[in-house]
Every structure is written in C-alpha cells, then in structure tokens.
C-alpha cells in the first residue's frame, strides 16, 4: 500500500512515553510467544503420548534454563493480555485522551510485573 505518512522506526533513537513502552513491550512479548509456539506444540504432543513422554517434558521444563524462559514467557502472556485489554478498550474509545491513556499504560506495565511477582511467589511456595 502506497503511503506518504512519515515512518521513523529507529528503536535506539526513539524516546518513548509510557504508551509507547506498552506498545513495544506488546510486540516484544508477542514475538517471544511466537517463538514458543513450535516448542509448546512438540512438548504438548510429547506429554500426551505416555508416561515416558510426560516425564521427559516435565524434566525439560524443570531445567533451570527452561525455568528462566518460562518466567519470561509468563511475563509475556500477562503483559500481552493486560496491554491487549487496554487496546480493546481504546478501540471502544474508552480512555483515548492523553492523560488517561498514559495512566492506563503505566497501570498495564506495573500490574503485569506485580502479577508476575504473585505467580512466582505461588510457584516457589506451592
């Protein structure tokens, strides 16, 4: 599609307001989850196949490196979900003005990290 709109995507030179951070983190979390899709499909198939497969999948997920990836993926799911709800509300013209949009952007980022914290506390103590 031809367009004369200005495009500036140099990530290292852009200074973003909170709304922009939510946006780029939405993308980053989305890309991380895309990378997880094939791995998730194979692991799911393996875990369903039988006792050996289930044990192998569980063992892999208990490796410390996999734990680290899982924490990152948990944050991705939570941030993407919260930011996505914010975008749907914006589409419905809720909170479109600059001040509420910036406030909701902060709420999304902070709530995502806090929720991740709660999940981690539960996983460590349970």
């Amino acid at each position: 599609m031809q367009s004369t709109r200005p495009v500036f995507l140099d990530l290292w030179r852009i200074k973003l307001p909170a709304t922009g951070f939510v946006s780029i983190l939405h993308r980053v979390s989305g890309v991380l989850m895309v990378l997880a899709i094939p791995v998730g499909a194979v692991l799911f198939d393996q875990a369903v196949s039988g006792p050996q497969g289930f044990a192998a999948a569980t063992a892999l997920l208990h490796h410390w490196l996999a734990r680290l990836v899982l924490v990152l993926l948990a944050w991705s799911v939570i941030h993407h979900l919260f930011a996505g709800i914010r975008y749907l509300l914006l589409d419905l013209r809720i909170g479109l003005d600059r001040a509420p949009a910036r406030r909701s952007a902060w709420i999304v980022m902070v709530a995502a990290v806090l929720t991740l914290g709660l999940v981690l506390i539960w996983e460590v103590t349970a």
Binding site: I37, A41, V48
Partner: peptide, 13 residues
C-alpha cells in the same frame, strides 16, 4: 507444523 502437531496430540489424547 505446530497446528498439525497440536491436532495430532489432541487426537491421540
């Protein structure tokens, strides 16, 4: 491939 893999897993389950 992921979609087919997931579908196959559901059928097997």
């Amino acid at each position: 491939a992921s979609g087919l893999w997931g579908f196959k897993a559901i059928v097997i389950a």
